[in-house]
Amino acid sequence: MIYFDNSATTKIGDEVLKAVLDTMENNFANASSLHRLGYETEQKIISAKKGIANIIGGKEDEIYFTSGGTEANNIAIFGVCDAYKKYGNKIITTKIEHPSVLKCFNELENRGFEVCYLDVDNKGYINIDNLINEIDDNTIFVSIMYVNNEIGTIQNIDEIGKKIKEKNKNTIFHTDAVQAFGKLKINVKYIDLMSVSGHKIHSQKGIGFLYVKNGVRLNNIIFGAGQQKGLRSGTINSEGIIGLYKASEIAYKNLNENFEKTSKIRKEIISLKDKIKDMCINGDEENGIPYILSLSFKDVKGEVLLHSLEDKGIFVSTGSACSSKNKKDLSTIYYVNENNLGSTIRVSFSFDNTLEEAKIFNNTILDIIPMLRIYTKR
């Protein structure tokens, strides 16, 4: 089996699984309990918060654990907009955000907020000058994805954050870093809020975190017994947090090595362009993150190609697993040629993948595409 769908989810790592099982067996107590077992569990969670904060250049009390990226995005967006609505009514995002961001903005637009959806170029980049020109005294919130989950475009988040504050120091800046954390070195100096999901970096599903810079106010969207300073009430997911921290440690310990390895895999697959006609690389071929690659093949339906590869034991996707069941993902039209909208697959990698797997993928594509094109023209 060759698994090239790591942007949808990753297989839990062996060391992560060991840490999770150990926590479930030995630190199963509720971290809010006052007895010794609860205290010991709480101390492990505190250590995990410190470790994650250190990775991103933040502080322990700025980390809030969530069920994943979608919840973190919702808490950030609705929490800020509700808390700051008396100071302004304008919010800004891009047209190519993950659905868990875009649909929040759609809902806020329905509630009366003025929403600006920024265009991107054919490589998926925003025009930073256009963003800054949109910011005024009425702008309370901006959300820009760190790494695009479809084509791997890396936005210059540090420059964006810095320029936002130069234009309006009171504008809150959020980034969805689900596809960036564990793959890029991140520092939150110019970021007010950041969303992360564990199952993209070989941790388990159902765990993530939201970074909230001290001083940023969020109104609750979840109410309960007041855990995590009341922002995200609910029993702490101890094993999830320990697994997320272990996965984060491993990812950042091997950050450069993993980046180099996946870069070689990506480069090998890009070499297909020289061997097959009418193949297109979507996004920034030279500078996109090496973990994600979007490919279009003229006269081939992406879903048919996906299942043809599946028959050969190769697993890819036609795009984001969170939106692939939609009949039309409107965000895709901004960086995929209209003629290739139905002819695109996404291959996404992790440090578990090998260069040999990429070569097998290429040979399989070279066999499959001509046959599928013949079938399509019948």
Rank of each mutant, 00 (worst) to 15 (best):
M24S: 04
I91N: 02
G68W: 03
V80L: 09
N30K: 10
D61G: 05
T41I: 08
G51H: 07
G88N: 10
T66R: 03
D14F: 05
G57P: 09
E42P: 00
D22C: 07
K86M: 07
I12Y: 08
K86E: 15
S33N: 07
K50V: 06
D22N: 14
A72E: 08
A31G: 15
I46K: 13
L37R: 12
G68V: 02
D82N: 11
F65W: 00
A48C: 13
I63A: 13
Y64S: 13
G57L: 11
A53R: 06
E25A: 14
L37A: 10
G51A: 04
T41Q: 06
T70G: 10
K49Y: 02
N54K: 14
I91F: 02
G13E: 11
F78H: 15
N27G: 00
N89L: 03
E62N: 09
Y87M: 07
K95N: 13
V20D: 01
S67D: 03
K86L: 11
I63F: 10
S67P: 00
K95M: 15
L21D: 12
E42S: 12
L21W: 03
T93H: 04
I96M: 05
K44R: 15
E62H: 10
G57T: 08
S67I: 04
I46P: 00
K44W: 01
G57S: 11
H98Q: 07
K44L: 15
G79N: 06
K90Q: 13
T70N: 11
I52K: 05
N30R: 09
E60M: 12
N73K: 03
M24A: 01
N54W: 01
L37Q: 11
A83L: 08
A72H: 05
L34R: 03
D82V: 00
D22A: 09
T10K: 10
H35M: 05
A53Q: 06
R36W: 02
G38W: 10
A29F: 06
Y87W: 02
R36I: 13
K49W: 02
A31H: 04
K44N: 15
G51Y: 07
G13H: 12
N73D: 11
Y64P: 09
G68H: 03
E60H: 06
M24C: 05
G13K: 13
S47D: 13
I63N: 12
V80S: 09
E25H: 12
L21K: 15
T94K: 09
I56T: 03
A31I: 15
K11G: 09
Q43A: 08
I91H: 02
T23V: 13
I96T: 15
E97Y: 00
N73M: 02
I77A: 11
S32Y: 03
A76I: 03
D14A: 07
I77P: 07
T93K: 03
V16L: 12
S32D: 14
E71W: 00
T70K: 14
V20N: 01
V20F: 01
E40V: 07
H35D: 15
K59M: 09
E97Q: 13
F78R: 14
L37C: 01
I52L: 11
S32N: 14
V16C: 12
K59R: 15
K49M: 08
G69T: 07
L34A: 12
K85Q: 07
M24N: 10
T93N: 12
G88K: 11
K50N: 05
T66A: 00
N54E: 12
N30W: 05
L37V: 00
